[in-house]
């Protein structure tokens, strides 16, 4: 007997045949298709963190891949799982990406065992970004605590590559102890750039430590801030950005000009799984980058 209903095969739809581009959010696509990527280098940063340099393998996909500072990726280890990871490299590098990963669970544990040449999957980019355009012509404070330097690197690289677009730039970084400092090999380079001040502070110094000691907010005591011409990006654990933003607010910086990145455990990155909801806000769609005023208004954000 003749079939009453025609089978519907979504893979034959025209949108599905377009090249995979997660920036085109409204298009129907293979949302769980990954870009195959190869680990080209593994750089040991600390006892707990490694930097993975990965390259999207397909030439066309690599060229097409674009992201903005602050966006994140879903990193897939086939068979182990998928985790959200902020992009830690310059947006101009397109499909050559750097991902700074702390060993914490199953997927990151397995990843820390992986060597160069291993193939992983990437989906993205997802989420909101820091408003680098709006910040043009202003002073910029780039502030990170602990692992927060990983997401802060994308805006740092962006500011460095477009140095003439911004006025004075401060990079402030704090960790618990000197051995937890990430990317310590890069500070000197950043400091040599005209009008970039970089200061690093630790809470618990070791005998070799020569820099300042204390909480990150201490670094804000000496800096001259013109609140009307200043933007801030603050990356770190909630307790850290809460104090930093409160301090900046005291100094007169409007909360709408402070940007933070929230961490949640996304399972999809696409506003579907609901795992990253804060109150009724999807961190993966409306964030991870929020201005601080919005964060103040989110229930259970901090």
């Amino acid at each position: 007997m003749k079939q009453l209903f025609y089978p519907f095969d979504i893979s034959l739809e025209s949108e599905m045949k377009e090249p995979l581009d997660f920036n085109r959010r409204s298009r129907t696509k293979d949302v769980d298709r990954v870009f195959r990527a190869e680990i080209t280098n593994v750089i040991r940063l600390t006892e707990m963190e490694k930097l993975f340099q990965v390259r999207i393998m397909d030439d066309a996909e690599r060229q097409r891949f674009t992201f903005l500072p602050g966006q994140f990726l879903m990193l897939e280890l086939p068979g182990y799982g998928e985790i959200p990871i902020s992009i830690s490299s310059a947006p101009t590098n397109k499909g050559f990406l750097e991902l700074c990963i702390r060993r914490a669970g199953t997927v990151t544990g397995a990843l820390h065992k992986a060597r160069r040449g291993a193939r992983v999957g990437l989906r993205g980019p997802f989420g909101t970004h820091f408003p680098m355009e709006k910040m043009k012509g202003n002073n910029v404070l780039l502030i990170a605590g602990g692992l927060g330097l990983a997401p802060l690197r994308a805006p740092i690289f962006h500011v460095i590559q477009n140095r003439s677009d911004y006025r004075n730039v401060h990079i402030f970084y704090g960790t618990g102890s000197p051995e937890q400092l990430l990317f310590d090999y890069q500070y000197d380079e950043w400091r040599r750039i005209d009008d970039i001040e970089m200061e690093v502070i630790v809470e618990r110094p070791d005998p070799n430590w020569k820099g300042p000691v204390g909480l990150i907010t201490k670094l804000l005591d000496h800096v001259e801030i013109n609140p009307r011409e200043t933007y801030a990006i603050v990356c770190g654990p909630p307790i850290m950005f809460k104090f930093v933003c409160a301090r900046l607010s005291d100094l007169g910086v409007p909360m709408q000009r402070m940007f933070v990145s929230l961490e949640r455990r996304m399972h999809c990155g696409m506003g579907k799984c609901c795992r990253c909801n804060v109150g009724s806000t999807f961190t993966c769609m409306d964030g991870p980058v929020f201005d601080y005023w919005s964060v103040m208004n989110l229930k259970e954000a901090i």
């Binding site: 068979g79 060597r115 040449g117």
Partner: peptide, 8 residues
């Protein structure tokens, strides 16, 4: 037997 380049 190697898996993701990792030798178990």
């Amino acid at each position: 037997m190697k898996y993701l380049g990792i030798e178990p």
